[in-house]
Write a protein that binds this DNA or RNA. Structure first.
Length: 586
RNA sequence: GGACCCGUAGCUCAGCUGGAUAGAGCGCUGCCCUCCGAAGGCAGAGGUCGUACGUUCGAAUCGUAUCGGGUCCGCCA
């Protein structure tokens, strides 16, 4: 349960009551009223801005409203003090027992602690990775993959119904190039010498493997065939082969997709015509000529009439072309159909996780989504900034032209999947991120992965010690919840740790609503820091240690606390897709 | 020329969708220490939140302008 929501409900009842009594005007807009933990703990446990927010509407001074609230809030169970502070905040303190009860809640709930129903089952479709099937995933794809996957898990935990989707760009010029590039390697595999891969072709070594498999399946049957025959066959073979590799790489990263949508299948189904017709029906299509982009001079610019979508009516900067000069659809047109398809399959909230180079694409896609769903669907685009790969502070050299790029698989093999997943969430998605192979595997406080895992492992270490000391005892969470005398948890550090854990459901809800999975990583870091701090207390002050032979009752209470910490950490790591470890071995 | 993202402590970054005296880690300074399980601990200094207006009871957060860095810009996907 979310304690803050509970008090928000209580507050709402009080406000309604005051309105009914005529002490406040009826019909106040309460949408901006919040109940939050104050930033500064010395202000209390809970704080509400109600008096400030309502003052203007009610035509009263903030303090007058605050006085009304104080009188009522004092009557609530669990509230030990209420005071007015600053410009009109109302700060509450709750009894320590109220907080201690959260430990019991956590033990009983296990890793489902923090689960919420704010999502109310709203269907969300989240599309991520969606790399072109022209080569294996490389390191840069890791970020989008992790951000998308963690966001999906976060939304599920917050009560949304989530579809994890991958859009296969298997139509268009790039897969044609793939087909030709594969053909080149195919001829090579059959004995021809290829001095150099021509410019514009994919030079990667991986196509040699694809070609070898093709030879195994088809022998030399394509050597003398016309291009019109070999191209579609070889192209499709290559796409299929590469897609298998991509799926394996995603699996290695722990990313599970429910749906792979093919662009080509979408086109074949007539979905693009369908979407196009819908835009025509809304009078959003016209033939027009675009202005050339200023400042940047395309060499071969000449004004041409094009089939344009009125994106400017929905906040975009210019209207966007839907057809190429040869009459085929632009990528954008296909993508409109794809987004409509996702909407029609039941998701009104669409999320695209995209790379930094797609930043300029967002407005038009949002415009199109609004248009084609009649305003019923919304699109949020999460743009992932670049990842800089470093080795001890030195940039890792990569050359796309030479085909020497670091693959996702390389990264996973080097540092492990959990490290990749955690590090990718240690920055906001729209902030560039440095990934240093040396630092991310370091066992030190500088490394957040280690720091958080270490906290979890420490919890289990203490529990193992307790078990070893008394093998007959049952330290299961249910038993601890039922038997621990939580009132013995009196130290300020212990209560602070409990309050931090009580915040977990709030973190889930706010992070889910903001579509920001990185907040989980930061929260876990804070929680780990609080736990390590408590541990360190025991160094100087032996009465603060967890295991106290002379005081079994307090020991049990502390074991309950520690178990709760490990549960919350495991719950958070679960959202991130990271396996919590119970032991660290160098 | 335009669009989007970023600009917060010496460095790397948070900042809970507008709240109270802006936080953390590293680095720096000064003490302490060798531990139930292995990153040593504690304390301190350090910021006109790029700049200027504006909206608001209240702005790092919203708006406008401007400077600096990045990404991108008609039939590539």
């Amino acid at each position: 349960m979310n304690l803050f929501n509970e008090f928000a409900k209580d507050l709402r009842v009080i406000l309604d009551d005051l309105a009914a009594n005529g002490e406040l005007p009826a019909g106040l807009d309460l949408s901006k009223v919040t109940v939050e933990p104050p930033r500064d703990a010395s202000h209390g446990d809970l704080s509400t801005n109600a008096a400030l927010v309502l003052a203007k509407q009610a035509g009263r001074k903030p303090r007058e409203i605050a006085d009304l609230l104080v009188a009522r809030l004092q009557g609530l169970a669990d509230v030990t003090s209420v005071e007015i502070a600053g410009p009109g905040f109302v700060n509450l303190r709750l009894s320590d027992d109220t907080w201690r009860q959260r430990v019991g809640d956590i033990l009983v709930a296990g890793v489902t602690y923090g689960n919420s129903s704010v999502g109310a089952g709203t269907a969300v479709n989240i599309e991520y990775v969606s790399a072109n099937p022209t080569g294996p995933l490389h390191a840069a794809h890791a970020r989008g993959a992790v951000v998308g996957d963690a966001l999906a898990s976060l939304l599920e935990k917050a009560g949304y119904t989530v579809t994890r989707e991958y859009y296969i760009n298997d139509a268009g010029a790039q897969v044609e190039v793939l087909g030709r590039s594969t053909y080149l390697r195919y001829r090579e595999a059959l004995g021809e010498t290829v001095a150099e891969v021509p410019a514009g072709m994919y030079p990667g070594e991986y196509l040699k493997d694809v070609a070898a498999d093709l030879v195994e399946r088809d022998g030399s049957k394509w050597l003398d065939a016309p291009e019109s025959e070999w191209l579609p066959a070889i192209r499709d073979f290559a796409i299929e082969r590469i897609l298998i590799g991509i799926k394996e790489d995603l699996a290695a990263l722990g990313v599970r997709k429910q749906i792979f949508s093919s662009e080509r299948a979408l086109i074949a189904s007539g979905a693009v015509e369908d979407a196009y017709q819908s835009l025509i029906d809304q009078d959003l299509i016209y033939q027009g000529v675009l202005e050339p982009p200023k400042g940047k001079k395309p060499d071969d610019w000449e004004p041409r009439p094009q089939t344009l979508f009125r994106a400017t009516q929905f906040g975009d900067d210019v209207d966007r072309p839907l057809k190429k000069s040869d009459g085929s659809w632009t990528y954008f047109a296909n993508d409109i159909a794809y987004h409509l398809d996702k909407f029609r399959r039941g998701s009104s909230v669409l999320i695209d996780v995209l790379g930094a180079d797609h930043g300029g694409y967002v407005k038009r896609m949002q415009a199109a989504t609004t248009a084609v769903t009649g305003g019923q669907g919304t699109l949020d685009a999460k743009i992932c900034q670049l990842v800089h790969l470093l080795q001890n502070g030195e940039p890792v050299k990569m050359s796309k032209r030479a085909g020497t790029f670091v693959t996702l698989r390389d990264v996973i093999d080097q540092v492990g999947r959990d490290v990749v997943r955690f590090i990718m969430l240690t920055r906001r998605n729209d902030q560039t991120l440095e990934f240093d192979f040396a630092k991310v595997t370091e066992q030190s406080k500088d490394n957040p992965v280690f720091y958080v895992q270490y906290a979890h492992a420490r919890c289990h270490s203490v529990l193992r010690h307790a078990s070893a000391a008394a093998p007959e005892r049952n330290l299961g969470p249910d038993v601890l919840a039922a038997t621990a005398a939580l009132s013995r948890l009196e130290a300020p550090e212990e209560l602070a740790l409990i309050k931090l854990m009580a915040n977990w459901p709030r973190i889930i809800e706010s992070a889910a609503q903001a579509h920001e999975a990185h907040r989980i990583a930061f929260y876990l870091y804070d929680l780990a820091a609080a736990f390590h701090g408590l541990w360190n207390k025991g160094k100087d002050d032996t009465t603060m240690r967890f295991l106290l032979e002379e005081d079994p009752e307090l020991t049990t209470a502390r074991l309950a606390l520690i178990k709760a910490v490990s549960i919350v950490i495991a719950s958070g790591l679960g959202v991130m897709g990271v396996e919590p470890v119970e032991e660290l071995r160098g």
